[in-house]
Nucleic acid binder design. Sequence first.
DNA 1: CGATATTCATTGCGCCCGCAACTATATACC
DNA 2: GGTATATAGTTGCGGGCGCAATGAATATCG
Lengths: 162, 162
Amino acid sequence: MAHEIIDDPRITAVGLFNEAYLGLNAKLACQIAQFGLSPIEFEVLLRLGRSPNGQLRMTDLAAQTSLTASGVTRVVDRLERDALVKRTACPSDRRSLYTVITQSGQQKLNAALPEHVRLIEEWFTGRLTTEALDDLLSGLRTVRDAVRPGAEAGVKSAVQVH
Amino acid sequence: MAHEIIDDPRITAVGLFNEAYLGLNAKLACQIAQFGLSPIEFEVLLRLGRSPNGQLRMTDLAAQTSLTASGVTRVVDRLERDALVKRTACPSDRRSLYTVITQSGQQKLNAALPEHVRLIEEWFTGRLTTEALDDLLSGLRTVRDAVRPGAEAGVKSAVQVH
DNA sequence: CGATATTCATTGCGCCCGCAACTATATACC
DNA sequence: GGTATATAGTTGCGGGCGCAATGAATATCG
């Protein structure tokens, strides 16, 4: 009855991956929510905040997040409604729009970040020795590079895997 | 302008965690979809399949997945509509319901599992040396145990972390 | 035993987001 | 230069799921 494959250690490994990921994110989501933001809104703000001029085109946001173009439109809709970002025209391509973080968006981001980092330290990085953390990140990097759905910000040429 | 904290390596680490997790799951979701299942439906089927008698109460399913009770109700609704599970009364507590996997559910699970494991091997476990995999899983386990949202199946007494 | 509190599951409502269709602009090709 | 194709972004629609309210059964406690 395939009673052995259902307990395959590889399935267990993925289960562990899931639990660790979801558990950690639940902790972080809770803190982010205190600033009136959803995790995806926080991520967009973060990516804008670390980009040159605090701006990114909608398409780039879609590539860097787990969202489709449609999803980006709506997240930016919400952030713009709350005056945390604004849309501005792209001079070189009139199809494109820049989403640029506002003063108020930067302030909210700066306000949230210290505690955010503290929580990451508390529930994740601080739980491991330097060496164990390096090992973990190295493994994650290997997996990330394998499954890269676009991966690194700003990457233009994506190698297609068969 | 807090230009340093936004590039804190701990934030980067979480970003890496995200990319690896989402990328891997996208690969797996794609395969699962070929069997007409969403990832959460597959997970429910899997957890039922590895449980004694292929059954679990709604509440247990909620505890083991990332779903609320309401979410479990609806997932089981869909699976039951497709005849992959069925609800049966719990004799000892008439508030509770068992969700039990059907013959047809087992067959679908068995059909999906080999390729599922193969994909995990291809995109995850097979990318790492035995040692690197052990290190990765050990790190994940540490994090999981810290943030445990209920963690191990069947655990009854949950130690509350302040 | 009887009243109160708790637990299991479901449901109405609303948000979020993917898909596919659509508009506008840009690029390619003859 | 003009037509075909590709790309940027938005929108209607529909599905998935959380929250809070509800109903039913059980547990707790005076």
